[in-house]
Design a protein around this nucleic acid. Structure first.
Length: 287
DNA sequence: CTCCTGTCCTGCCGGC
DNA sequence: TGCCGGCAGGACAGGA
């Protein structure tokens, strides 16, 4: 799915197309996404004008001038396409929702696996309920510091890779960027969170920030489904060090060592890492 | 509480 | 060529 960089790229694409423009009509082709689209969704938002487009973690929150708004999550396979002229639009399979804009534009939400979410919120309250009320800090904000992350991890009994995927620990990080950030900070993905020292976390925090920023600047990563809102591909996938690179030489290790990227499975998700430069810490067992 | 497994859904790729 | 299993960027419920 789109992780933070892909969602941010989508948000930026939506700004010129939707912000401060009236939604004239909403077409719901299929309301049965992972969570059914809120009944009455169209009635509350048709005629409204979006005044804010916010990203929080992997979610986009759009707030309108009539005290309503919507929350959008792209799940694993969600995609947003913008057509400046709705006459250029050709209906495609899995186009579930269409936003018609007053200037003739059309915003199309396509999601083959329907793992995404789209629901109505009250503009005043969107962040006061789950998942936002329980969500961890934004990794690109000042609230995400080594001290803050250490605080959240030092009692946690899960492997660090799993902890990074937990949106209550830090928001917006998914499978790709968890793998990449752990590689960049030389931390073995199976390391128990509580076994990380403060100086490990001091490497991890900037590594997470850095990989997310670089990915945003590349328009995100395009694997199977993801595209930018204009249909172009992101290109950060060409910069992966370990993700989806099983058997490839480690970009960090000396060539003479002949070490290659390994793939393991953690909680049914693939993890990619270099066994040479991401050494597992020896854990002192409590007794 | 915390942690892990399975599940939602479709599409694609590789192996036979 | 076709069929089948495995896998995919996420989140959540339910059970241990």
């Amino acid at each position: 799915m789109p992780e933070l960089p892909e969602v941010e790229t989508v948000r930026r694409g939506l700004e010129p197309a939707m912000l401060d423009k009236r939604i004239t009509k909403i077409t719901l082709n299929r309301p049965d996404l992972r969570v059914p689209i809120t009944p009455g969704f169209e009635d509350k938002l048709e005629g409204a004008t979006l005044t804010q487009l916010i990203r929080r973690g992997k979610y986009i929150i759009a707030l309108a001038d009539n005290d309503y708004g919507f929350v959008l999550h792209l799940g694993m396979s969600g995609r947003v396409a913008i057509h400046a002229d709705k006459n250029d639009y050709t209906p495609a399979k899995h186009d579930h929702v269409l936003f018609h804009i007053e200037d003739g534009g059309l915003i199309v939400l396509n999601d083959p696996r329907r793992f995404g979410m789209l629901y109505l919120v009250e503009a005043q309250n969107w962040d006061k309920e789950p998942p936002f009320s329980e969500m961890g800090p934004e990794p690109l904000s000042n609230h995400f510091s080594a001290d803050a992350l250490y605080e959240r991890l030092h009692k946690k009994g899960t492997p660090i890779k799993n902890a990074l995927l937990d949106q209550k620990v830090v928001s917006g990080v998914g499978n790709i960027y968890a793998c990449e950030a752990l590689f960049d900070s030389h931390i073995h993905p199976e390391t128990q969170s509580f076994a990380l020292q403060h100086d490990d976390i001091e490497r991890l925090v900037p590594a997470i920030r850095d990989v997310l920023i670089r990915a945003i600047n590349s328009g995100g990563s395009s694997l199977r489904d993801y595209k930018q809102t204009d249909g172009s591909l992101g290109y950060f996938q060409h910069s992966f060090s370990v993700y989806d690179r099983e058997g490839a030489p480690c970009p960090n290790c000396d060539e003479s060592k002949n070490c290659v990227v390994e793939r393991i499975v953690q909680s049914n998700r693939s993890t990619f890492f270099c066994p040479a430069c991401q050494k597992k810490k020896r854990i002192q067992k409590k007794r």
